[in-house]
């Protein structure tokens, strides 16, 4: 995909620890120009996709993502998303986007009360033109590593998710108690994506799968449809 002209920005918060994974997914995995944006920056610069990576931002104090949502960069992310910019939150990034109100719902402690670290089979939902079984296949296999991945939303919110086709992925074997086995959602407008599984840990030959490439391409295909036609 070199020369595709797609530019990626990866946010860094104190406590982010998957920022380099996300960077590698897009730079090494997809060959795209990728750069970091520090959480104190108030501008994102020129970016076609903003990635909010996983980790333990601000030590996960109070609630996961509750402090990071107040970082200066999040004002820029909010503006970017409101103008239709594409945002992908992975794991802690998903939690941050939910806390920031950019995605519906919330993530609470796993029902097992244990940190779960394993590779999961995920059923792909029909969530619109960029993210659906036609592009990704019926299932993808991605790693998870979290203690707070138990997705919650009220009944009216869940109905909205179903009606608007906002659910991206569901666990085949629910590892954390998530309502409806939900592993990832998008916003109603369709430009903000969040998921607990890690596409950024599934793109090298030594990883448990390489489906992260497909997921990254699906997200990028929202603005660059030609991306989804390339083979993984």
């Amino acid at each position: 995909m070199k020369g595709a002209g797609i530019k990626i920005a990866v946010l860094q918060f104190p406590g982010s620890n998957c920022d380099q994974d996300a960077y590698q997914l897009f730079s090494a995995g997809l060959g795209l120009p990728t750069r970091y944006v520090w959480h104190k920056d108030t501008r994102l610069g020129d970016a076609d996709l903003v990635v909010v990576p996983g980790g333990f931002s601000y030590g996960d104090y109070l609630r996961c993502g509750a402090i990071a949502r107040f970082s200066p960069v999040m004002g820029a992310v909010r503006d970017y998303a409101s103008r239709g910019g594409v945002v992908l939150g992975i794991c802690n990034g998903f939690q941050i986007l939910c806390e920031a109100g950019l995605l519906p719902g919330a993530l609470i402690r796993n029902s097992s009360l244990e940190f779960r670290c394993l590779t999961c089979d995920l059923a792909v939902s029909d969530a619109g033109p960029a993210f659906n079984p036609g592009i990704l296949g019926k299932r993808v296999r991605l790693p998870i590593a979290h203690g707070e991945g138990n997705y919650r939303i009220d009944e009216a919110g869940r109905e909205r998710l179903e009606t608007n086709r906002q659910i991206l992925l569901r666990y085949v074997d629910n590892p954390n108690g998530s309502l409806g086995s939900i592993a990832g959602v998008r916003n109603e407008e369709g430009n903000v994506f969040g998921m607990m599984p890690h596409p950024d840990r599934a793109f090298e030959r030594f990883h448990p799968s390489m489906d992260g490439i497909k997921v990254a391409r699906a997200v990028l295909s929202l603005r660059f449809p030609e991306v989804s036609k390339k083979s993984a």
Binding site: A66, F70, G105, A106, I108, G157
Partner: peptide, 8 residues
């Protein structure tokens, strides 16, 4: 906005 998350 900070101490609680009204969703949960």
């Amino acid at each position: 906005d900070l101490l609680s998350n009204p969703v949960i």
